[in-house]
Design a protein around this nucleic acid. Structure first.
Lengths: 198, 198
DNA sequence: ACTGAAGTGGGACGATCGTCCCAGTCGCAT
DNA sequence: ATGCGACTGGGACGATCGTCCCACTTCAGT
């Protein structure tokens, strides 16, 4: 094995861990499975990380921090706020369909974090991040559509997150595209009612 | 240990397994943890079940089959369909708040089933059951409110399930009651638009 | 009372887990 | 070139996992 500084190994191991979690689930993301995916020896793992828990924590943090352009539509389209919201949700749905395993992994990581008091804050931070990204999109969309949110935009964002979560979970189980689109439509409908003309 | 027929042991073990999964997560639901919860010896486990997988499968099946009155409101109240839906969703939310661990367990079992090709049908069946219960409620509500669904009621039910899933997941992480209520309100709003006066 | 089936308990199995140790090797500063 | 710290590889550890075995006890039918 080539000689690689520990900091780079950490990054490589985190990426390998994400691939393992995506493909086989967090239960199978053992230290041996992760180093095999990364093409390293077992000792390299504990040279870069003190423990598996530390790796998982960093995995969650990393993956949440980089959750950006995926959900954030860069070009808002549609002639009114409702259309914009639906377009945004459908865009997210395309992202979900393109890489279902990734969203499933995110879901598993959340549940995993929820099960340990130490890690619970990570799950909360994950949702705070989602809310922040959602609020930013919602504010931009309202600006473009010439409307104002009648509820604080963070609150609207949290409802948006709940809707996308529901869409994700349901589609991951049923793989029913029509239902997912119906959810996007209904969600956009409901959210648009939280805004009024400026 | 008292002598108990294998069939009763199976039921007792399933109940014990549900308690363990609820309290500590499916990852900690080992054969030893389950028999300890049930107050049995390890041998009794493999006398009643061929394998742990068999127990988990039966746990999922059992717990889904009995998912009835929890979500199904027996007394629909509200003067129009929108109010009825919101009342129903809030009722579900009360149920969620009363026993968060149970819903978290259901979520984990779904994800667990999703990870194995053999068990995938169990997750699908779980959602089919949810849809069936949802459709029944929606049909009853429409009847009472004097409206008809403009979309097939099963389709509406699937959207309803997605919304409740989102509400559940978000609340389990954030424990924000206000957001959950806002989600219920918005979801009822959106769903009610899928109906029109008869 | 006798027998066979049903149920029980404890201990053990091989596999796999996270972690650790240590001898060895590389690269860089001196 | 040489020494030292950074890094590597293989093998091992104790713990825990699912499962199994077997001697034993209880109960129902005769």
């Amino acid at each position: 094995m080539a000689r690689i500084p520990a900091s780079e190994r950490r990054a490589a191991l985190v990426q390998a861990a994400l691939r393992v979690v995506s493909q086989r689930g967090i239960a199978h993301a053992t230290t041996r499975a992760i180093v095999a995916e990364a093409g390293m020896s077992l000792a390299s793992f504990h040279y870069a990380f003190d423990s598996r828990d530390e790796l998982i924590d960093e995995l969650i943090t990393t993956v949440v921090a980089r959750e950006q352009e995926a959900v954030l539509p860069d070009d808002l389209q549609g002639h009114d706020i409702r259309d914009m919201l639906e377009a945004g949700l459908l865009r997210y749905f395309d992202h979900l369909r393109a890489d279902p395993e990734h969203e499933q992994a995110m879901l598993e990581l959340t549940q995993y974090a929820l099960r340990s008091p130490d890690r619970h804050p990570l799950a909360v931070a994950q949702y705070a991040r989602y809310t922040e990204l959602g609020a930013r999109s919602l504010a931009a969309a309202a600006e473009l559509a010439g409307v104002v949110w009648t509820t604080p935009v963070e609150q609207v964002a949290r409802v948006l997150i709940a809707f996308t979560d529901g869409l994700t979970l349901t589609w991951l189980v049923t793989r029913d595209d029509d239902v997912a689109r119906a959810v996007a439509h209904a969600a956009a409908d409901a959210l648009s009612r939280m805004a009024e003309p400026r």
